[in-house]
Computed example of a mutant assay.
Amino acid sequence: MREEKHQISAAYERDRERQGPFEMDHRLAVKQYSRSSADQEEPLPHELRTPAALLLTMDYLVTHVMDAESRDSGDWFHFIWDRTRGIRKDITQQQLTDPVSVGLVEKCARFHVHCASALCELPRDMFDQKINNENLTKCLQTLKHMYHDLALRDVPCPGEPEFRAYDILLNLNEGDILREVQTYSDAVRESAEVQSALRVYVALSTNNYVRFFKLVRRSAYLPACLLQRYFNQVRTRALDVITRTFCPPKKVVEFPLSELQQTLGLESEAECASLLRQHGLESEQGT
Rank of each mutant, 00 (worst) to 15 (best):
A197F: 09
L198C: 06
N173G: 06
L172M: 06
Q182C: 13
L170P: 02
S196V: 09
E174I: 09
A192L: 11
R199K: 13
I177D: 05
V188T: 13
E180I: 02
S185E: 14
E193M: 11
A192W: 06
A203S: 04
L169C: 00
V188C: 09
Q195G: 04
D176N: 12
Q195W: 05
L204D: 08
E180H: 15
E180M: 11
D176E: 04
E180K: 10
Y184P: 07
V200T: 08
A187C: 08
R189V: 01
N171H: 13
L172H: 06
L178I: 10
V200W: 02
R199H: 04
Q195Y: 00
A197W: 05
V200M: 05
L169R: 03
S191E: 10
N171Q: 09
Y201V: 06
V200P: 00
D186I: 14
V194N: 03
V194L: 03
N171R: 13
R199W: 04
V202I: 03
E180S: 15
E180C: 15
S196Q: 13
L204S: 04
A197R: 12
N173T: 12
S196P: 01
N171F: 12
S196N: 11
A203F: 00
V194E: 02
E193K: 08
A187V: 14
Y184T: 08
L204I: 11
A187G: 04
D167I: 01
R189W: 06
S205G: 14
V181D: 03
G175P: 03
R189E: 08
D186F: 10
S185H: 14
D176P: 01
L169E: 08
E174G: 08
V188E: 04
S205P: 01
V194Q: 05
R179A: 15
D186Q: 12
R199P: 01
E190W: 12
E180A: 15
D167H: 03
L198G: 02
Q195D: 11
N173W: 04
A203K: 09
L178H: 13
A197V: 00
Y184R: 09
T183F: 12
A192R: 05
I177K: 05
E180F: 14
E193T: 03
S185Q: 09
R199G: 04
Q195M: 07
N171D: 07
V188G: 00
L178E: 07
D167Q: 08
S205W: 03
I168F: 01
E190Y: 07
I168T: 01
E174L: 08
D186P: 12
L170A: 00
R179G: 14
T183L: 15
S191Y: 09
S205V: 13
L198W: 08
D176G: 10
R179M: 14
V202A: 07
A187I: 03
S196T: 07
Q182G: 09
A187Q: 09
I168K: 09
L170H: 07
Q182V: 02
E190D: 15
L170V: 07
Y184Q: 09
L198P: 05
R199S: 03
Q182P: 04
A192I: 02
V188W: 02
V181H: 01
T183K: 06
I177S: 11
Q182H: 07
S196F: 10
R199A: 12
L172D: 02
S205I: 10
E190A: 15
L170W: 04
T183E: 12
E180V: 13
Y184W: 05
